[in-house]
Each structure stands twice: as structure tokens, then as C-alpha cells.
Nucleic acid binder design. Structure first.
Length: 146
DNA sequence: GCCAACGTTGGC
DNA sequence: GCCAACGTTGGC
């Protein structure tokens, strides 16, 4: 399983919206950046992703699951743009802020720090575990809820 | 609201 | 294919 991070401005599409969308999930549409698109093409069903609020909040608030592989983005006719579907899986009990991430030496190489503007990012396994720990999700709890 | 970083576009 | 101009993102 691979791990990812999805960024969204909460006043456009928030974690709350995502949760209300339920288990069917929703298209992660509107991405118009090749690197972000390429990341989505690499995603497999069941891969997990952090849900990050940009602009406002500036914190990781939830964990989502990829529930549909990359397919054409329905919001454009331009065949270049594809997206996956994701669904909300679990809240992060204690949201992890960008500040905390930047302050943690273990997360110095995280894309959120090094490639600030990329909207769909890969997350390494050790980074995933560290952020989960910081967010109050110990491995046992993680196993239980996911 | 500002502005730095960076991706995209388009003229040559 | 280079690179200047431009637009957008996103932290502050």
C-alpha cells in the first residue's frame, strides 16, 4: 500500500464535505498539474491519503482511501486531465499542523515541506507513521479503525 | 492582502 | 527549445 496527501482549500472542499459525501466517495477533480495527475495515475485501490486543509487551517485533518482508479476528469473535456475518487475513512483525532510538521526533523523531506505547492503528493511510509503518531493515532488504534 | 515560488504559455 | 511574461498557489 502506498500513501498520499491531498490538499484542499476548506472553503472550496473541506474534510466535512468529504465526510458528508459518504462511502461512495467523490472525484478529486480540478487538478491541472501534471505532477499531481501523475501521482493520481500511480494510485491503487485501497491506498491511503492524508486530507490537508490549505490556506485556512493549515493542518492534516483526516485520512481518506482511494476508491476508484484514475479516470477522465468530468469537469473538463481536455483528455489530459484525470483524477481518482476518494472517500473519507477516519478523522485525525488531533489535527497535525504545518508548523508541527516543519518543526519535526523526521519530516524534513516531506513533500509538504519541500514541494509546498504540489496539490497531490506522495507520502513515505515513515512519514505516514510519524504524522499518524503525532495526530494521536497509535498503531493499534489505526489497525482498529482502518 | 501581499508576495515569493513555481508552473504554464507563447513568441521567437 | 529557450525564456520572458503571466497566472496561480498558498504561507504569512
Amino acid at each position: 500500500m502506498k500513501y498520499w496527501l491531498f490538499k484542499s482549500e476548506p472553503f472550496k472542499w473541506s474534510w466535512d464535505h468529504q465526510k458528508k459525501a459518504g462511502d461512495k466517495g467523490t472525484e478529486w477533480d480540478g487538478v491541472r498539474n501534471y505532477q499531481a495527475r501523475n501521482n493520481m495515475r500511480e494510485m491503487a485501490l485501497g491506498d491511503r491519503g492524508f486530507f490537508y486543509h490549505s490556506n485556512e487551517g493549515l493542518e492534516i485533518v483526516g485520512i481518506a482511501e482511494i476508491c476508484k482508479l484514475a479516470h477522465p476528469d468530468s469537469t473538463t473535456d481536455d483528455a489530459r486531465w484525470e483524477c481518482v475518487d476518494i472517500r473519507a475513512l477516519a478523522d485525525v483525532p488531533r489535527p497535525v499542523s504545518l508548523q508541527e510538521i516543519k518543526a519535526n526533523p523526521k519530516l524534513a523531506d516531506m513533500s509538504l515541506v519541500t514541494s509546498m505547492r504540489l496539490s497531490v503528493q506522495p507520502v513515505k511510509e515513515n512519514e505516514w507513521e510519524e504524522v499518524c503518531r503525532m495526530g494521536g493515532l497509535d498503531p493499534e488504534t489505526l489497525k482498529a479503525i482502518l
